[in-house]
Design a protein around this nucleic acid. Structure first.
Lengths: 344, 344
DNA sequence: ACAGGAAATGTAAACGTTTACATTTTTTGC
DNA sequence: GCAAAAAATGTAAACGTTTACATTTCCTGT
């Protein structure tokens, strides 16, 4: 037999309202009654139906998360921290990656308007203009953007401070005395990639070092891009003495290419990455890289979203926070490292 | 103004039933009417409310996924493949990791009984007995278990063939002529760990090689466990000439410890892992390991679950499928490898 | 022009909760 | 012992869909 709140009420000899009060622990109900209801509940192994509950309360205790991908440590860490924070707050997490650009919007829209979730955490570093944002925002559901492009103004966003990180990285390389610092960029149009590149350019400019086009190669954040990127760089007349890879995965590709080309790191070529993925610690020498505060971003996003949902945080004021990065020194930049196992 | 199906119906001058028919594309409605409704829908940017829909249809188009953890490539790959398959089938995914043992059950129960989801994919290699399973199953919601312990009979389960994989690995080592093959085990009570160990034992037995207790060390699938595991092994009178680590992460620890102890792989010590994580390809020499068909497991799980939900697959018959593994040969077992970059 | 069937549409009862409001019961202060 | 306040409980109307069933409209063939 199907058992619902009415059935429990009947068996306990009370009204559904009372059962509801007992189940939710709010509203007053006598101890006696509570026990009686609880007994029946246990007896029947009864659980509230969340869907009905959601309909009635207009609240689902679920947050939607839309990410551009679901591969890589980066996203795993993000998902992990979101899950942790959501769990701590007793919320459920509905996850979806953008299977295509078109799909991102659709998914977000479905989330926003379908009533399935109370709010959305959205990361879409590539496809975003005010137009789209307005479309998405129209639903008026709480939204927290992750790494939103700089020109996206009208929303609550949490961003890794790519510029700061890149500046730190390149400045550090300059400090070592390198003069021909190449950069392997991330995909064009990607916010993170663009900001990191901007940081690189700014440092050079500030230091009166001429920007050289032939020291820049385009990449797409993959290992392969780093590999072929370095090959490309060293096949040119002017060879770099240092490389700033826009992420660690590409830095790893650089390591591989260096190995294949008998280029020693850091003696012949210094390398710095970005992200501080687990892998970067395993390289020999350990990769000098910029730490991205991914877990922090995840948990802050959840907290902010829940704040907006509960009304504690205003959703009126656009808000943009930069999460600061930090340079993790390995041996790849030329710094002397104690050569102990860094793993443990 | 809040717009619901009634409002659309009003504006289009039809009944809610007709709007519903248009939105769902089933039931007959004249072309004329359809256009009119669609126009109003577009005009108002209307979307069906999934919660209400779920309540009415007793179906949410959402599947729940409960995993023991949310770290590691392994789980990322799993989540990724589940997401892909779910997306392809137009389903949503609600994800949760087991923040604690107690929590696993609670989460699953909430999923099962809360009406939030249509079915659950559950991976809980540690905590499972028939008792719990019955508790979980009582709700009668479709369930697919991943890597369920062998003694769990009464359910639909998909399992990585740990035994086969371990047998292949150890057999391969024997083929190289190693005689003192050590094993670093996974956590006690973990199905995968136990099955891999059983495979190891069975090969030795079949080959009439005496099982030596001092060649076995306990681990917990972490890098550290592998590191200290090897240190422990080589500190004993009888030193192994090969090590079978129950997963790649521990094999990586073995590499680290070997490096620190100036033990050459494979010259002084052969190493074989299990899982075939991305990292294993980056080691020098590349790790010989057992490939776990993780993406296959994810997509099969979704397919099976949806099958059970739709009634195409019987949930009456218990079902257990072993997904076969394969040995990936690297240089760590002693096989001669062309020393090209294996990365690209 | 009309019977009869098909197609289109409408009506209203679920689906399983929550909650404002109304009512009843208990407690409190005197 | 009683009025008034407080606590406990109940009633019934949402919440926004879907869908069986009923009704109306449109064809079709004669």
């Amino acid at each position: 037999m199907k058992i619902d709140i009415r059935e429990i009420a009947r068996q306990a000899g009370v009204s559904t309202a009372t059962v509801s009060r007992v189940m939710n622990g709010k509203g007053s109900v006598s101890d006696n009654t509570r026990q009686r209801v609880l007994a029946v509940v246990k007896q029947n192994n009864y659980k509230l139906n969340s869907i009905a509950r959601g309909l009635s309360r207009q609240k689902t205790d679920t947050i939607g998360v839309v990410l551009p991908e679901l591969v890589d440590e980066f996203f795993m860490d993000l998902v992990h921290s979101i899950d942790e924070a959501a769990y701590a707050a007793n919320k459920f997490v509905m996850i979806s990656s953008s299977h295509s650009q078109r799909n991102t919007i659709e998914t977000v829209m479905e989330f926003m308007n379908g009533g399935r979730i109370d709010g959305v955490i959205l990361m879409a570093p590539e496809i975003m203009d005010e137009e789209l944002l307005r479309l998405i925002t129209r639903s008026n559901r709480p939204l927290v953007m992750l790494n939103a492009p700089g020109h996206i103004k009208d929303c609550y966003s949490l961003n890794i401070d790519n510029h700061q990180g890149a500046v730190a990285a390149v400045t550090h390389l300059l400090g070592h005395g390198y003069e021909k610092i190449a950069m392997i960029k991330g995909p064009a149009g990607n916010t993170d990639a663009d900001e990191r590149f901007a940081g690189y350019q700014d440092v050079l400019e500030k230091s009166d070092i001429p920007f050289r086009d032939d020291l820049i190669v385009n990449g797409d954040f993959t290992l392969q891009a780093g590999y072929y990127g370095l090959l490309r760089l060293i096949s040119q007349p002017v060879k770099p003495d240092a490389v700033f890879a826009a992420n660690d995965m590409m830095a790893l590709g650089v390591y591989q290419a260096a190995l294949a080309s008998q280029i020693r790191i850091p003696e012949d070529l210094a390398v710095v990455g970005f992200d501080d993925i687990f892998l970067s610690r395993l390289l020999t020498p350990r990769l000098t890289t910029v730490h991205s505060p991914v877990p922090e971003m995840g948990s802050k996003a959840v907290k902010a979203l829940l704040g907006i949902i509960s009304g504690e945080v205003s959703a009126e004021q656009p808000y943009r926070e930069l999460l600061s990065t930090g340079l993790v020194i390995g041996g790849s930049c030329g710094c002397k490292m104690p050569n102990s196992s860094l793993l443990l």
